[in-house]
Simulated scan of single mutants.
Amino acid sequence: MKTLFGGLISMILLGVYVHLISVAVRVVDCVSGPGCTLYPLSYFNDGMAQALSVIGGLVSALVIAELALAKPGEAPGARVLDAGASANATRAVTVVSVLYVLVWIGAGLCAFLVGLYHPKELPALTTHGQAWLGLAVSAAYAYFGLSPKT
C-alpha cells in the first residue's frame, strides 16, 4: 500500500511538472510572437515559477535516486518489488518507471531548449532548463555508475 501511494504522489508531481513546463512554453511562444494575447507574460505568475522550481527539484531528485539505486541495464524502480513478484507486476513497474524517466527527460529537455532559444522571455523556464541539464548529467552518472578513477 505504501508503494502504491508513493507512486501515486510521484505521478501527480510529474503531471504538475509537465503542466507547468507546458504553460511556460506557451507563454514564451506567445511573448516571442507578434500580436499574441492568449498567454501574456503575467499568465506565468510567481507562484507558478516557485512551484516549477520546487516540483522540478523533487521530480529530479526522485529520478536521480532511483537511477542511482538501479543497476545498469535494470529498470529503475524494480527494487520495490518482492523477490517473488509476478511477471505482470515486474512488467508494469518497468513500463511505468521507464515512462516516468522518459517524460522527465522530455519535459526537461523542452525547458532547456526553449530557454536556450528564448533566454530573456521567461527567466524561470531558462533557469530551470539549465538546472535540469546539470541534473540530467548527474542522473546519467548515477545510473551508469560513472565515477572518476582514483
Rank of each mutant, 00 (worst) to 15 (best):
L4K: 15
V114T: 08
I64D: 00
A70H: 10
A75F: 08
A24I: 04
E121Y: 06
E66W: 14
L109E: 11
V96W: 02
L4Y: 08
T3C: 11
L41S: 15
S138D: 04
G57Y: 05
A24T: 02
L8F: 04
G33H: 12
K149Q: 09
N45F: 01
L99P: 04
V63C: 02
H19M: 13
T94W: 00
V137Q: 09
C110M: 09
V137T: 12
L116G: 08
V59L: 12
G15M: 04
G57H: 10
K120D: 01
R91H: 10
G106P: 09
V31M: 07
S147H: 08
Y17F: 13
T94V: 03
L52T: 06
P34F: 02
E66D: 14
F44N: 00
L81S: 13
Q50H: 07
G73S: 06
W104F: 14
L116D: 08
G134L: 14
A61E: 08
P119Q: 05
G106M: 12
S147Y: 06
V27S: 06
L4C: 13
G6C: 02
V114Q: 04
R79V: 15
S60C: 08
T94F: 00
L109F: 07
S86T: 15
S10T: 06
V93D: 05
F144C: 15
V101K: 03
C30P: 14
A139K: 13
E121H: 03
A87C: 04
S42W: 03
A139L: 13
L52A: 00
D82L: 15
L99Y: 11
L122A: 01
G73E: 08
E121R: 07
G115H: 00
L20A: 00
L20T: 03
I105H: 05
L125V: 06
S86D: 15
A139T: 14
I21D: 06
D29Y: 05
A61W: 11
D29C: 11
A136S: 11
V137R: 14
G115V: 02
T90H: 11
L113E: 13
P76K: 11
L102W: 10
D46L: 07
P76Q: 12
V93E: 05
Q130L: 03
V63N: 00
H118A: 01
G106H: 09
D46C: 01
Y141D: 09
G84F: 10
L20N: 00
E121K: 04
M11F: 03
C36I: 13
H19I: 11
C36L: 12
L8N: 07
V25A: 02
S22L: 13
V25Y: 00
L116E: 10
V25P: 01
S86N: 14
V98N: 06
K120P: 03
V80W: 02
G77P: 08
S60W: 05
L38A: 15
I105S: 01
I9F: 05
E74N: 14
D82N: 15
Y39Q: 09
